[in-house]
């Protein structure tokens, strides 16, 4: 059995929805609210709650604007968010290596 501390996986990212959001944001420049809602099969409320948590942690930047009188919300990952995600992936890698050993 490995002696890796699983608590090192950050709780904020360690949820199915937020991990998916962070992955989408790290692989793109900008992601629209409706894109995330559609791909993650989430309700508006559920997605908003998760996005707010990521925003409060300083992991995402939110831009709200009106295009042809319709509201549009887009998200971008911040440098802090990028670092947190990279650390998270690094820890996942360590767990896999520890499990293999």
């Amino acid at each position: 059995m490995s002696d890796f501390d699983y608590l090192q996986l950050e709780d904020l990212i360690h949820s199915r929805v937020r991990l998916s959001i962070m992955t989408a944001l790290i692989t793109s420049i900008e992601v629209d609210f409706s894109f995330l809602k559609e791909k993650l099969h989430l309700s508006d409320g559920n997605l908003s709650v998760n996005m707010r948590k990521l925003e409060e942690a300083g992991y995402v930047n939110i831009t709200k604007q009106f295009i042809k009188r319709k509201p549009r919300t887009t998200y971008r990952i911040t440098e802090k968010g990028r670092e947190a995600f990279e650390k998270y992936i690094g820890n996942l890698k360590k767990i896999i290596e520890a499990t293999e050993n």
Binding site: Y6, H14, R16, S28, K39, L92, I95, T99
Partner: peptide, 19 residues
């Protein structure tokens, strides 16, 4: 734990495919 890690990797992989 192994299953959980597999699920995490699956989520990441699926989202990369989506984007």
């Amino acid at each position: 734990m192994g299953n959980e890690i597999e699920k995490e990797l699956e989520i990441i992989q699926q989202m990369i495919q989506n984007t």
